[in-house]
Amino acid sequence: MPSYTSPHASRPGDVAGTLKLLAWLVLAIALIVLDHRGGWLAQLRHRAVAVVQPLWWLAGMPARIGDTLSESAATRNHLASENRVLRNALLVSGARVARLQAASAENAHLRELLGAARRNGGLDVQLAPVLDVDLDPTRQRLLLDAGTRDGVSLGQAVIDAGGLVGQIISVQAGTATVLLLTDPDHAVPVMVARSGVRLLAYGSGRSDRLALANVPLSADVRVGDVVLTSGLGGRFPAGFPVGTIVALHPDDSHAFLVGDVRPAARLDRGRDVLLLREQATR
């Protein structure tokens, strides 16, 4: 195949090109270091994210449209049968609720008798839809379709039906970013439900694992134990399920144990999460 450029003609251009490459590379690396280490760019990033917000909204649109279509395409027959099933389920749930109400009333009564510290009874939560967008899969983040406009604030704990999901790390007008429990940068103070041993659960970067580090050999911790938030540190309220211990093994020094925890929350599925309004510090 004939060469369309003579190799000598582009020499001076090559040098200039390489210099330009170096300049841009240095700029890129400076950005990476600033963003990764210093976090000086946080403010700038915060502003700029407002610009790309519509893009996120747009990218989530096909999923939303798909949902709407599949819902409206359901046939009458299907709806009728679904209706019947739901009616049944409602009856059963109604019965359960009645029982729970009785239990709750009894519970409240007992609490009063015990003179327990006054707690506000129901959790004050807010439902927030997950914006259907993949942020970088190697970082464990979630984008919510709710922001300062909806009263979301920085540091709020996020839960789902299973347990703790994470915390809000940045809020814009219409969206908020959740740092999941499983992000390598995340740690949550926990306590073993059975024995009360206090530990720290770190994110592992995988959505189905948390890591317990530095568990003393003598600590009363077993495989199968449920861990709850301990409420220490004031960021998360106490008593929310974090996960179940699935494995314990000695660490490299054989002085401590490390544990694997399966998160209780379903971090990789579900369309909605709950934001806790209740302040952890009372």
Binding site: L27, L31, I32
Partner: peptide, 8 residues
């Protein structure tokens, strides 16, 4: 900015 990767 869009993908939430480290800036740069």
């Amino acid at each position: 900015l869009c993908f939430g990767t480290v800036l740069g």
